[in-house]
Amino acid sequence: MTTPPSPPNPKAIIFDLLTGLLDSWTLWDASTPTGTSLEGRKWRKQYLEVTFGSTVYGPGSTYEELVARSAGESGLPNSAPEALLQNWKDLTAWPEVGRVLRALREKGYLLGVVTNCSKKLGHAAVRNAEKAAEGAGEGTWKFDAAVTAEETGWYKPAVQAYHGILPLLGEGVRPEDVLFVAGSAGDVVGATKAGFRVVWNNHVGLERKGDVLPLREGKSLDEALRDFL
């Protein structure tokens, strides 16, 4: 197995959104006919396979289309993806997200998001993570940058999907300056291939893929980012 070398302190910490920061799994479960993880987890895992296997974002492979496709491939009716998109505003952050984001900002890291999502849904979900940070302190709170698959034209794990955020972080931020917080096994492999250092917030206990290991794996952001908090 290969493990990336331990980095100096990064300039930027970039997050996967829908598992790294948000509990989208509960919303997927609730959107199924039974409202349970029995159907929801099967659908969500198929969704990860479909999105991480699509590469290019465009007609026939938009985010909403892939959500619907993965539902059908999981044996679910059209009502499931329709319910998911209708209730998208209900996405919530993991309990520690607000506190951790504020702690990282105080340490001077640039903070951003790279997500396999449409522009509209992705930035709406980003705002939910920002609200969690606002709830953990005073005043407004914003990421330094956030980019979706629709905006870059690429789905993770394509290198272009990860590198699409670099110009938004300012001059001088290179791949080796980034620590990426993965939400899925595909992100661990993809972000490492993109030249990022990687930790994994494996909040839902997903299985590893391949022989690439993160610097650290934890079941919360506190665990995954222990060396940087």
Rank of each mutant, 00 (worst) to 15 (best):
K209H: 06
T152H: 05
P8T: 14
H203P: 01
R105M: 00
F15G: 05
L17Y: 00
G218I: 13
V97D: 03
D211S: 05
F228P: 12
M1H: 13
T19Y: 12
T62Q: 07
G190F: 13
G75L: 02
Y63I: 00
F143T: 00
Q46Y: 02
P59F: 03
E39M: 02
V114S: 02
G58S: 02
E134T: 14
W43V: 07
W88I: 06
R127Q: 13
A185C: 09
L229C: 10
N202K: 13
R127H: 15
G35I: 11
A125F: 05
V100A: 01
A136Q: 00
G108Q: 07
A224I: 07
W94V: 02
T115G: 11
P95F: 05
V188I: 10
I14V: 15
A83D: 13
Q160V: 03
L166S: 03
G35P: 11
D90F: 04
R208I: 02
T19M: 10
A185E: 14
G183I: 10
P33F: 12
R69I: 01
A12D: 07
G98P: 11
P77I: 08
V147C: 02
V188A: 03
L27R: 08
L66R: 14
E39T: 03
E171P: 12
A185H: 12
E82S: 14
A149K: 00
A103V: 09
P4R: 00
R216W: 04
A103N: 06
G172E: 12
K156C: 11
W25R: 13
A124H: 08
E207Y: 04
G98E: 10
L38W: 00
V56M: 12
W28T: 12
G170L: 08
A161R: 08
D211I: 02
Y63A: 05
W28H: 15
A146R: 06
G195W: 05
Q160W: 05
P175F: 12
L85K: 11
V178M: 07
F143M: 01
D222S: 06
V198F: 04
R216G: 07
V198W: 11
